[in-house]
Amino acid sequence: MPLKFFLPALLLTVILAFVSLFVGVRDVSPLDLFAGAADQRDLMVLVASRVPRTVALVLAGSGMAIAGTIMQMLARNRFVEPSTAGTVESAGLGMLTVLLIAPDMPVIAKMLVAAAFSMAGTALFLSILRAIPLRSILMVPLVGIMLGGMISAVTTFFAYRFDLLQSMGAWASGDFSVVLRGRYEILWVAFALTIAAYVAADRFTVAGMGEDFSSNLGLNYRKVMALGLVIVSMVTACVVVTAGVVPFLGLIVPNVVSMIMGDNLRRSLPWIGLCGAALVLVCDIIGRIINAPFEIPVGAVLGIVGSLFFLYLLIGRRNRVA
């Protein structure tokens, strides 16, 4: 990885994070802060809301982008990511289950339940893929989206029956305005998992070459699949539990990075993490500025950017969809 490109990119992301600290309803000026002129309330806003929000954006962004990459390697398909494979929807079903059965669970337990559900959902998706007779590349995301639709139909049904539609609606579109100190720390788990993903990067690259290649190189394909499944589900669950669905991030970032620098994950994962964080920061800042003082959730912004990018992948580069 050429350091001379990575460092400026890192710097840019840090600047974005800095901007994110000072954009919002209450005007907190960095100059006041450094001059010591900021009052107690400004500091409060910064510590209790802005800093947690920015940290959450960075962690969620890099986590989702890396989760998307791993899924693409495991499914050996460019169009797969947690929101086109039933993973996100399953996590939602898990959340609903917690709300129904034990609403007072601590957040870590909620996350674990959601993770268990999303793991089951993703495993179901992967086993359906194995059953498809002729594996067309485009059929894979198609099946994933449909599966996700079915799972969320189940969720909606029960949410409707038990009058929880409103609480479920809240996480359907990822929103970081709800992130406060004490309510985002679970994302550090996602961060730890992305580090784990980096440690195992070579395994995922090899697994991305397929089962035969992996066996030839003496890699236990099933174990790598299982590891990937755990990482993807846990990261997704952490993000969904804290901020809601952050769609398409795992699709955009890995594809762009792969176009430029290929899929040797040892080299590309740091870039993927960085770009994921930067993209979420940008989308969140846009959402905060465009209609101030009201906020547009980052999920809504990413929904537009992401589906446009997906269309570009499908149509614009039709000749090398392979």
């Binding site: 690259t205 190189l217 899929d263």
Partner: peptide, 25 residues
């Protein structure tokens, strides 16, 4: 019929031939 979806360079691919010995390092 080796179809790779992963985008790897020639050197990347050949280096993975050493995976059984060095596990990617």
């Amino acid at each position: 019929d080796n179809h790779l979806t992963a985008r790897l360079t020639v050197t990347d691919l050949v280096t993975f031939g050493r995976y059984p010995y060095s596990k990617g390092r």
